[in-house]
Design a protein around this nucleic acid. Structure first.
Lengths: 235, 235
DNA sequence: ATATTCATTTATCGACCGATAAATAGTACA
DNA sequence: TGTACTATTTATCGGTCGATAAATGAATAT
């Protein structure tokens, strides 16, 4: 059934305000992110403008088109979780990999596990955009490949060659399992184990053991490492 | 930029056909599923009708509204992967749990790992519909709870009590990791390890070891079982 | 052959969409 | 205070949307 008539927005006569263009623009992008996260990218510019407390044509003074505004939203959302120093810390071999993974996934999920980020990510993912492909590649090349490299180092294996397809797949399943926790909590709004850090710790332990079991059997160092890991997992 | 004018659909004069109402209806739902999977639920009824080779108002002879047509799509998609005998087979204790899990996840993912199912699922999930909540609950109560129960049995633990939050969380991360494989392949269209069965086998091995490590330590049977599992994982 | 039935098409409605042009009003500076 | 500048609003356009009513025409019964 189609809505007959929308209750006319009671035009509360708020005194017209003027903001500096930069502030306006930032505010527009910020609120547009919230708006499109809830409504999807088919949300109308009129409703968006209403929530911004301005009229719809004003949007077009700041963005040449709705599509361009949405592109700004993408840029902000996709770059947000990546502007950290996680890459450096992930490679800091003065600490055990297990601790580094724990730190990385806690901070990374602090950045992306929220309704807005996840919904924008999923909406844009369904559109098959370049930026989404770029992000997935980045996760693979910058995060998972690095994790595999560090794991190989701790396992006493060669660090030079590219990760094998099997290594990558195990890392993806691990990463995806953690990611899905956020989807369950913020998209499906399903109850989850409240202690996120514990969930991550368990996933990491399982992942490291699984990696060593499935791929690290060939070296003595790997076996020693497995023992150590399993002992650590007892904590 | 907005499209100026759509190239008029060259009205190829296909002789008007009459189909039986039942066939028409089924065909409409089938094609509508494909259509909405690609375009999202904001796809227009005119374009849908064009792909069906009929005119737009005809849709309203078979469905009172677009919303009702979409509901039929939901019903079909959400029930499709569940009309199997997996629940029985998952509980068939004459076979090792590892094999049962392998069989279940191979057949389950055979059903849901395709572009259409996954996209409809994600689109509808973002709308926060009841049927999506119902499906997630079903996965938890019928699949994961069962898996935990069977795992407990093999581990020599009590089978009576409900799964703990921690057990459920480990199972969800496992399940989500596998699910994400399908998302990567069919939504992000990212390259994945082509051998799906191998991916599932590795995920299962890792999961079972992880479960026993994290939760099964208290019983002697569990320890024995762990040894057996680790031996099996060598295969 | 003619009448009846109903699947399907043609025509059209009102609402909403993104976008543009012109009018208005807040602000800064002389 | 007056004037120039521009942020913001009002008004409006063409297009698309879901939905409905009326006209058409293919199958079926008589």
């Amino acid at each position: 059934m189609r809505m007959r008539k929308k209750a006319k927005a009671t035009a509360i006569p708020v005194k017209q305000k003027r903001l500096s263009p930069e502030d306006r623009r930032k505010e527009f992008i910020r609120k547009a992110t919230e708006f499109f996260a809830e409504e999807g990218f088919n949300g109308g510019t009129r409703e968006l403008a209403r929530r911004l407390g301005v009229t719809q044509p004003l949007l077009y003074r700041y963005f040449p088109s709705k599509e361009e505004l949405i592109r700004e939203v993408y840029r902000k959302v996709y770059l947000e979780p990546l502007d950290s120093d996680w890459e450096k810390r992930l490679s800091d071999r003065s600490r055990p990999l297990r601790d580094r993974l724990q730190y990385f996934y806690v901070t990374y999920t602090d950045a992306i596990f929220n309704r807005i980020w996840l919904r924008i990510y999923l909406f844009s993912g369904l559109k098959g955009l370049d930026i989404n492909r770029w992000y997935v590649s980045t996760v693979r090349d910058k995060i998972l490949t690095r994790i595999i490299k560090e794991w190989r180092f701790e396992a006493g294996l060669s660090v030079q060659s590219k990760p094998t397809a099997k290594e990558l797949e195990l890392a993806w399943v691990f990463h995806g399992g953690i990611f899905y926790y956020g989807v369950r909590k913020f998209i499906y709004e399903s109850p989850v184990l409240e202690d996120k850090e514990k969930m991550i710790a368990d996933a990491i332990d399982t992942f490291l053991i699984g990696m060593t079991r499935a791929l690290g059997k060939t070296s003595r160092a790997a076996s020693r490492n497995l023992d150590r890991l399993e002992a650590a997992a007892d904590r």
